[in-house]
Amino acid sequence: MQLSSANVFAANRINLVVAHSAEAKPLRAMFNLRTQLSSRPFPVYQNAEGICLIVSGIGKVWAGAATAYLAGLQASLPACAWLNIGIAGHQHAAIGTGLLAHKIIDAANGDSFYPPQLLQGLQTATVITVAVPEKNYPQDAAYDMEAAGFYACASRIVTTELAQVFKIVSDNPRHTLTSFDIAQVQGLIEGQQSALTRLLGDLDAFLGSYRKAYTVSPVFEALLTSYRFTATQRVQLQRLCERFHALGLDPALFKISDQQFSTSKQLLLQLELGLAAQVGS
């Protein structure tokens, strides 16, 4: 099924990336997520409040691929926040503990990532991404199989403050993976519902302040469709629109943009002159 991404994801704000359908299931119920894309290449779910969920499959390569795929579907839309949610083993944390990643290590190559710690009030931990399930838990850290792949990709899509990783402890030396049943995932994730709700709310607030600061003017968008601009002119136009807005001169901007000019060059000149008339050349 191929959808028009601009329409489907227009309201999108937060993207969740999970590895397994067992992790997706309780989140779909929690946030009332409906199917948007069926199984191939990755299932995608969404709700009306702008939360989107993609199921990547297990492993860092699939996590990165699914992140990139969803970003591609949303390429023409404003920046979103990204959150990888999943289960993880831990050296000593109790089963069911929710942990926000403060450092992510890719065990295969030693690469490290440091998600900025803007979200307060959650227990944090280092997350080590491994290729096969870790049964010995050698370090004081959570062990997962996706975070490094997700983060390597997400940090190329959005500013790192808006990309985070949240893991829920599913196994530790006292409750090892051998005794773990996939059916337990639902309970583990449901047990973190309040933390997840708060986490998404906080991420959404940061996204809100980010979008407020960087959303381009609708006048800019409208003028782009009315004239032909070179890449340089486009940058000039955007900055001129920003300057009018920053100086509280939107009415003057509207007035000029309502006029008809033969070329984009003439429009830009008029905007320059209009601004100079207001603030001095």
Partner: peptide, 15 residues
């Protein structure tokens, strides 16, 4: 020194 950081957002809760 990492790229893809936002000084403005980080100013809200610096480390």
């Amino acid at each position: 020194n990492r790229k893809a950081q936002n000084f403005r957002l980080q100013k809200q809760a610096p480390a």
